[in-house]
């Protein structure tokens, strides 16, 4: 099994990779790449379904074992199955599914996001009590300056605030952001190559 999985990972990866760089020499590689990518798209959709089935299994087990919080699990499973069958029958684009999205999903997510503002502010205020080092001080000063520059004052306009804030975000922060991006790209490159060389086998082919 291990040889098969490594073979599949390496061959499929190399075929897709060659579809990026060698289509000038072998035009058929573009078609092969499209084919493999479309297979991957289908499988990713099925994987999402399998994941949701797993969620149902976990919560139904909790209900069956009458664990703490099984009442909430029952609520979750009920609404999950209800929404799924509603979407299956009516289709996701139906108006009722719009009610589900605009009435439940958006308000809950947005309200949770709104609560985050309180938590972020709390954490920032308490940061210096926790660790009073140079990094924390720089972090908070920059955050405060960017916040100041993102707002305006009543009745008066102080463009200097916006200019300072923009200089921080578009010049000073840009250096760090670009360094992080290049670092992430290098890391991605190395990780991907390790997978393609069969050194890393995150799919479980130890």
């Amino acid at each position: 099994m291990r040889v098969i999985t490594v073979f599949i990972a390496v061959v499929s990866g190399l075929l897709v990779l060659s579809g990026y760089f060698l289509t000038g020499f072998f035009p058929v590689l573009a078609d092969v790449q499209t084919l493999l990518l479309n297979w991957a798209i289908i499988l990713m959709g099925v994987a999402a379904l399998v994941g949701i089935f797993n969620l149902i299994t976990v919560h139904t087990d909790k209900i069956r074992r009458r664990e703490t919080g099984s009442f909430y699990s029952a609520i979750l499973v009920f609404f999950l199955l209800g929404t799924f069958f509603l979407g299956l029958i009516l289709r996701p684009e139906h108006g009722l599914m719009g009610v589900v999205m605009n009435g439940i999903i958006i308000p809950v997510e947005a309200a949770l996001m709104g609560l985050l503002s309180i938590s972020l502010l709390y954490a920032a205020i308490r940061l210096l009590r926790r660790r009073a080092d140079m990094m924390s001080v720089i972090f908070l000063i920059v955050a405060a300056l960017v916040m100041l520059g993102s707002a305006t004052l009543p009745f008066v306009n102080l463009p200097i605030l916006g200019i300072t804030s923009r200089w921080i975000t578009q010049v000073l922060a840009l250096g760090g952001a670009r360094g992080i991006l290049i670092g992430v790209a290098l890391g991605t490159l190395m990780t991907g190559l390790r997978v393609l060389f069969g050194v890393d086998r995150p799919y479980g082919g130890n």
Binding site: R126, L127, A151, T152, L153
Partner: peptide, 19 residues
């Protein structure tokens, strides 16, 4: 704007106090 200014004031004031 009020939310951002309030946050800035709390972070600087509260930060100094907590420091």
């Amino acid at each position: 704007s009020i939310g951002m200014l309030l946050a800035m004031a709390l972070i600087l004031g509260g930060g100094l106090w907590n420091l």
